[in-house]
C-alpha cells in the first residue's frame, strides 16, 4: 500500500482537477446563457427585416440575392457542414458527417466545411470538399459574407448543423437555407401592406434593395445556424466537463478513504509492534 503522504499529494492534485473542471463547467454554462440571449436578440432584428421584405412583392420565390447577377448558377446542391474547431466535441461531428453521407453524391453535391474537426473527419474518409472555413471564435457579428458568396453560386444549399435541445441533449440536423430563412420569417407578423415603387422611393433601385435584403437575411440565418452549432458544442463540452467533475470528485473521495485506511494501517502496525514488544518483555520477566 502507498504511504499516506503520497496519497495525500494525489488527493491534493485531484482536488485541483475537481476545481478546474468546475471552472470549465461554469465557463461553458455562462457561454450557453450568452449565446442563447444573442440568438433571441438577432431573431428580433431578423423578424423586423423579414416584415419589410415580406411586404416587397417582387417575386414569390426566394432569390438568394442574385436577381441581377449574370453569373451562371452551378447545377449542384451545396452542402455546408458546421463542425467544431477542435477535437473536444465528442462524437457529435461524426454523427453530423454520417447524416450528410446518407444523401451525399459526389456528382450532385459540393461540400463546404466549417470547423477544422469536420475537415479532418472528411479527409480521413477520403471525401473532398470545395472550401474550408474556420469556425469563428467570437460569438457576435460573425462575418459570413464569404460563405454567402459561395451559396449564391449554387442552385440550392443545405446546411448540416448541430441543434441545441437542452444542456444534456444535442442533435444533428439539416435544413435547406432558403427554408431556414422563410421558416424564421414565419415567426414574424404578417405583412400589413404592400411596398412597391408606387408608394415608395427606392435607392439605388427596388431590385438592389431586395437583393441586399435577401443576402442580409441569408447572412443572419447562416449566423444563427453557426451560433446554434456553437451552443450545442458548448453544451456538449459542459456535459463532458460535468462528467469529468463527477469522476474527479469520486476519485478524490476514494483517495481520502485510501489515505485514512493507510494511516490506520500504520497505527495498527505500530500498536501490534507495541503489543508484541510488551508480550515479549512480560515473557522475559517471567522466565
Amino acid at each position: 500500500m502507498k504511504r499516506p503522504n503520497e496519497i495525500e499529494r494525489e488527493e491534493k492534485s485531484m482536488a485541483a482537477l475537481v476545481e478546474l473542471t468546475s471552472v470549465f463547467e461554469g465557463i461553458a454554462s455562462m457561454k450557453i446563457a450568452q449565446i442563447k440571449n444573442q440568438v433571441l436578440e438577432a431573431t428580433a432584428f431578423f423578424n423586423e427585416l423579414w416584415h419589410i421584405y415580406s411586404q416587397l412583392h417582387v417575386s414569390a420565390i426566394f432569390g438568394f440575392g442574385r436577381s441581377q447577377d449574370d453569373v451562371e448558377v452551378i447545377d449542384k446542391e451545396l452542402y455546408i457542414i458546421i463542425t467544431a474547431e477542435g477535437g473536444f466535441s465528442g462524437d457529435i461531428d461524426q454523427k453530423l458527417i454520417q447524416l450528410m453521407l446518407k444523401t451525399y453524391d459526389k456528382d450532385k453535391n459540393a461540400i463546404i466545411v466549417i470547423g477544422h474537426h469536420g475537415a479532418i473527419q472528411l479527409a480521413q474518409r477520403g471525401i473532398s470538399y470545395e472550401k474550408y472555413f474556420k469556425l469563428p471564435n467570437k460569438d457576435q457579428n460573425i462575418n459570413v459574407t464569404p460563405i454567402i458568396k459561395e451559396v449564391q453560386k449554387y442552385k440550392k444549399t443545405t446546411v448540416f448543423y448541430q441543434e441545441y435541445i437542452s444542456l444534456m441533449s444535442q442533435d444533428v440536423k439539416s435544413i435547406e437555407l432558403s427554408k431556414a430563412v422563410s421558416d424564421k420569417g414565419q415567426q414574424s407578423e404578417d405583412p400589413d401592406e404592400i411596398i412597391s415603387e408606387a408608394n415608395y422611393i427606392f435607392e439605388p433601385s427596388t431590385y438592389d434593395v431586395v437583393d441586399h435584403l435577401e443576402r442580409s437575411m441569408m447572412q443572419i440565418a447562416m449566423s444563427q445556424l453557426i451560433l446554434n452549432s456553437k451552443l450545442a458544442q458548448y453544451a456538449s463540452r459542459f456535459r463532458a466537463m460535468s462528467a469529468s467533475h463527477t469522476r474527479a470528485d469520486e476519485a478524490k473521495q476514494d483517495l481520502r478513504m485510501l489515505y485514512n485506511r493507510s494511516k490506520r494501517n500504520i497505527k495498527d502496525a505500530r500498536l501490534k509492534e507495541s503489543i508484541i514488544g510488551i508480550k515479549k518483555s512480560k515473557a522475559g520477566a517471567a522466565s
Binding site: 419589410i52 411596398i195 415608395y200 427606392f202 438592389d208
Partner: peptide, 9 residues
C-alpha cells in the same frame, strides 16, 4: 419629418 416612404442602402 413628413418625408415620403423611402428605402435605401
Amino acid at each position: 419629418p413628413k418625408h415620403h416612404n423611402f428605402m435605401t442602402l
